[in-house]
Design a protein around this nucleic acid. Structure first.
Lengths: 141, 141
DNA sequence: ATATATTACTACCTTTTTGTAGTATTTATA
DNA sequence: TATAAATACTACAAAAAGGTAGTAATATAT
């Protein structure tokens, strides 16, 4: 499902940004807050911009902000954008079908398990996370 | 969830073996059937033996058979044996928590999504796959 | 204008995962 | 006992993922 650390990083970054109220997030700031390797984080932020999640501003006081509404970004979208499935020759799940049986023996059970997961992830947007985060803050008072 | 191709291979191998009725499976035979790289497959089979899923017989006519009942091997067991979670410092899900929030913002939603998946996988044994496979064969007649 | 704080690009290095090679060992069979 | 068909072990090679470095470009502030 989530194969890459990069995807984890991306979720962490977007989740963090979604729940705070800064006008702008610089790579340096995010690095300090999230402890993701500085240079790698930078590259990832640029990637997230290229994929349309963020938009960047160069120069002093520059940084990153969301390129679209938080409602429009669900967790499955983030994951499926960053994980590169070699879509052909594999099950949708990223589980390569064996040659003998197509679909393979695992296919059905795997699809069932995976779809449950995807259902939850795709129904959760960054806006939901933000709301939840703020509710949690209130509860703590 | 499933990060490694190795895990996919393992599931493919065990699933295949569970649904056929051979007395013994040699690496060479499995290689031809499943198209997994010969040498890598061999090593993996040895690993699966060390992990107690299979037992091996050396020498001519040797090969691999299950070391325990198919009922005792569920899919989550296979996955969690082969994927090496660096259990400490990470969520149970293998998703490293960010430093700022512990548990991280994603924690709850992720646990929910993941537990649905694990529930299905851990409730499915190789015996179930075998049964399903045979039912499917009958239906085709 | 110049210095400073930021992102962008490209190339490289390191670690992990995946895959290969060679040789030794085991065991049935002719 | 020799041969053939298997697994076991160890080391290495290749590919992918993760991480670093240097430099260029951009924009603000002084």
């Amino acid at each position: 499902m989530i194969r890459n650390k990069t995807t984890e990083y991306a979720l962490t970054i977007l989740g963090f940004m979604a729940t705070r109220n800064e006008d702008m997030y610089s790579a340096e700031y995010l690095h300090k807050q999230l402890n993701i390797p500085r240079r790698y984080l930078r590259r990832l932020l640029t990637d997230l911009s290229k994929h349309g999640f963020l938009k960047s501003t160069s120069g002093r006081n520059g940084g990153f902000v969301f390129a679209k509404d938080l409602e429009e970004i669900n967790l499955d979208l983030v994951i499926s954008t960053l994980e590169r499935y070699d879509a052909i020759n594999t099950c949708i799940l990223g589980f390569s079908c064996c040659i003998v049986d197509k679909p393979c023996i695992m296919h059905d059970i795997w699809m069932e398990a995976r779809s449950k997961m995807v259902e939850i992830l795709s129904n959760t947007t960054l806006a939901d996370l933000k709301e939840k985060y703020q509710m949690d803050l209130i509860k703590k008072l």
